[in-house]
Design a protein around this nucleic acid. Structure first.
Length: 732
RNA sequence: GCCCGGGUGGCGAAACUGGCAGACGCAAAGGACUUAAAAUCCUUUUCGCCGCAAGGCGAGUGCGGGUUCAAGUCCCGCCCCGGGCACCA
């Protein structure tokens, strides 16, 4: 998976490709059948920006862009196919996005609602939560997103929240720990309980979520999020309402991390369901409507945030948990809350229990008494897929004044993007202004109706492109399930870590959705994931907005594609970030020249003149190198050391060359060329031809390792005395 | 604050299982070839000290301790850099 190049590749992409391509070529040479799609979605934002700035048709721009990328990739010598045709610009592909959308609509997994959404003023569109980074748009890292209330389409990723988390057990072997950690964090499962507090004097209840029901006797107030629906009913005073509105505005404006906690008393009380006492109901800015039930019980003695808030507002602090080996703290003099589990005190019948026992028993009691229930809460939210953009799959929905939101019948798919659309960048879907697109009869009643004008997030495309790649011309289904069963799940996926909670979560969701539709039998799309390091330039991530993108074009022009590719692998192990310096590439170029000359001048075989010491030494080094590189491919992919060992071999061959016998020379040249092939395909192919063979070198068999030939006659043993090196012994 | 990475020469880095620290490459210096340059080939190159020399001695993998015959690698306690998460109840 390539992350979003727009027209030009940069060195990060070259590195990504070089890793995947080397691996695919090696696997071919080992006799495996490898299908290697490369996916991207390059054409949404860049196409529209170009249309806006240069007055060009985004479609024409995109086609030109595909052509230019294809040229660049061909120049890089990629043996494998790529699939830009099946990105969002191809109706043959996006038709199936619409088809999936209708399936999900039927199952209630696609729905429309009004919500506060992240709006990027630069993009002129809303973004999913996953696409907001540090409060800014993921593609405009310095542009803060705004909150806007809009009607939007959502995909119900939360329906799979539990499974997205649980199925990660299958991935522990093959996925990097940091990606799993990020996903775990993002999904954010919390086990706890929901408890109802009746509002005193009103036929209303406040439902709160807590993970620490064992502390409930220490609850000294309830706190509602400012947006909580009950706030309107409880707070009638105009001044107080203004205050709450300001609270909401300030929270949206400021960095939530260091926002001062403010709140106000509603004047109402709730009835504690366990001990029937009255607890005041407050409203405060640090309680989030979007998480749990939007209301909490504040237990200042045992929660850091509640403690800070209650101390500031003079709300009593009542400790109810003591350390296992210590006394209960005094609420009045407590300097900080006690957060650990311990022994429950001052809690009626539950006093004396451990926190864990109390949680269990109090939850059960709340359930039996009808005022509470066990509850699991997730932090992940549904995926907002509506975009006010031209370039994306049209959402196949028609709005009829009589029938409401009506799905487009399957037979009428695909809903095509209209051509010659004026891009305004004004934040409304450009499709809205195309009358011929917008006006359609209602599929149900036939009366006049309007199309949905938003298009789908292009992450929809990337969520399942790799399935389509196995069966790209299918026009009766997204793909043939039997074909998929042969290839899936993907054995190895290579991409950047920046997609940890974007593409890599969406595509896991999509696979589970397809499995439940009976389309695939695998639960996970990707067995093993490799995240290559970023390319850093002068201490900063390479990105277009920073203007520090290094194009491979100059390097290819000066040194050739093989040198550029190989250097991107040689400079650092592929999983590590790489501070880009071009100086080293001349070393790779020299190496390729040396190797080329060695092979061309030794390409002619000859009659055997019997083995000699030089032959034996050369064969020994050759087989040691085969062993090392084969190991590197099979386990850790440290291609930098693979390439270094090729260099060592060649250096040694230069020394031995005058005494090598003819027959060995050719054999060595052939194996050297085969080992070069995954890294420098052009040079290797050229040499393979020179060696008198025909056909693609990567269809040849990878050289096999002979342990007997690799064995050293003499082993040098260092002798240490008290940890100091004192002598060397040579032992046969 | 919590969770991941990482810290080794002038630079990119290597050392895979605790066993010769710095492979390989860049840059630098010297030599061969050449009228000359480029290219190529061959040397040297962690630091400090001693020696005319072959060579020798000492220090050294962010810092401080520890385990071990032996630590870049394992354990304990810190420091710094990068990334992710963070009023998530």
């Amino acid at each position: 998976m390539l992350p979003y190049p727009s027209g030009k590749l940069h060195m990060g992409h070259v590195r990504n490709y070089a890793i995947g391509d080397a691996l695919a070529r090696y696997m071919w040479m080992r006799g495996y059948n490898v299908l290697h799609p490369m996916g991207w979605d390059a054409f949404g934002l860049p196409a529209e920006n170009a249309a806006l700035k240069e007055g060009r048709d985004p479609r024409e721009w995109t086609l030109g862009n595909i052509a230019s990328m294809r040229t660049q990739m061909q120049r890089l010598g990629l043996a494998i196919d790529w699939n830009c045709e099946i990105a969002s610009c191809d109706p043959g592909y996006y038709r199936w996005n619409q088809w999936f959308f209708l399936k999900m609509f039927e199952r209630g997994l696609a729905y429309r609602k009004e919500a506060l959404l992240n709006w990027c003023p630069e993009c002129g569109t809303v973004l999913a939560n996953e696409q907001v980074v540090n409060g800014c748009c993921w593609r405009h890292e310095t542009t803060p997103v705004e909150q806007r209330a809009m009607q939007q389409w959502f995909l119900k990723t939360t329906a799979y929240a539990g499974e997205l988390l649980d199925a990660m057990q299958q991935l522990e072997e093959g996925w990097p720990e940091r990606v799993l950690a990020m996903q775990r964090n993002w999904i954010g499962r919390s086990e706890g309980a929901e408890v109802d507090f009746a509002v005193d004097g009103l036929p209303r209840k406040v439902r709160i979520f807590t993970t620490r029901i064992d502390t409930i006797y220490g609850a000294t107030c309830l706190i509602l999020a400012p947006e909580h629906p009950l706030v309107d009913e409880l707070v009638t005073d105009e001044a107080a309402r203004m205050q709450i509105k300001e609270m909401i505005d300030a929270t949206a404006r400021l960095d939530p991390g260091n926002l001062e906690k403010v709140g106000l008393f509603t004047g109402s009380y709730a009835i504690h369901p366990f001990n029937r006492s009255l607890v005041p109901i407050w409203v405060a800015n640090f309680v989030l409507m979007g998480y749990g039930t939007g209301a909490i019980m504040a237990v200042p003695a045992h929660d850091a945030r509640d403690f800070e808030f209650c101390r500031a507002y003079g709300i009593p602090v009542v400790p109810v948990i003591r350390p296992v080996d210590g006394p209960l703290a005094d609420g009045g003099s407590m300097a900080e809350p006690f957060l650990d589990y311990g022994i429950v005190e001052n809690s009626g019948d539950w006093s004396g229990l451990s926190s864990a026992e109390a949680r269990q028993k109090m939850t059960a009691f709340a359930g039996q008494s009808g005022f509470g229930t066990e509850s699991i809460t997730y932090r992940i939210k549904d995926w907002g897929i509506s975009r006010q953009r031209y370039w994306g799959t049209p959402i196949p929905i028609v709005y009829c004044p009589h029938c409401g939101a009506v799905p487009v019948p399957e037979n009428d798919l695909p809903v095509l993007l209209p051509l010659n659309v004026k891009i305004t960048g004004k934040g409304r879907s450009p499709l809205e202004s195309v009358e011929s697109f917008m006006h359609v009869p209602c599929p149900k009643c036939g009366g006049p109706a309007r199309r949905e004008s938003d298009t789908m997030d292009t992450f929809v495309d990337s969520s399942w492109y790799f399935y389509r790649y196995c069966d790209p011309r299918n026009d009766t289904a997204p793909f043939d399930s039997r074909t998929i069963a042969r290839w899936f799940p993907i054995d190895q996926y290579i991409g950047g870590v920046e997609h940890a909670i974007l593409h890599l979560i969406y595509s896991r969701f999509w696979t589970k959705m397809m499995r439940d539709s009976g389309l695939v039998s695998n639960t996970e799309p990707i067995k093993r994931l490799f995240t290559q390091g970023m390319i850093i330039k002068e201490g900063a991530k390479m990105s277009k907005s920073l203007g520090n993108v290094v194009s491979p074009d100059d390097m290819i022009a000066q040194f050739g594609a093989d040198s550029a590719r190989m250097y991107s692998l040689f400079a650092a192990p592929p999983d590590r970030d790489l501070d880009w310096q071009e100086d080293g590439v001349s070393g790779i170029n020299r190496f390729l020249g040396r190797l080329y000359r060695f092979v061309t001048r030794n390409a002619e075989g000859g009659a055997s003149s019997g083995g000699n010491d030089a032959d034996r030494q050369a064969m020994r080094r050759l087989h040691q190198t085969i062993h090392k590189i084969t190991n590197d491919f099979d386990s850790r992919w440290h291609f930098n050391t693979s390439i270094a060992s090729l260099m060592e071999l060649l250096n040694e061959l230069y020394q031995l060359e005058p005494s090598l016998s003819r027959v060995r020379r050719k054999e060595i040249c052939e194996k050297l060329t085969l080992m070069l092939a995954p890294f420098a395909p052009y040079t290797a192919q050229d040499l393979w031809d020179t060696l008198g063979h025909s056909g693609p070198v990567f269809r040849e068999t990878w050289p096999s390792y002979d342990a007997a030939l690799a064995k050293e006659d003499l082993v040098e043993i260092p002798v240490q005395v008290n940890g100091k090196l004192r002598a060397h012994l040579r032992v046969a």
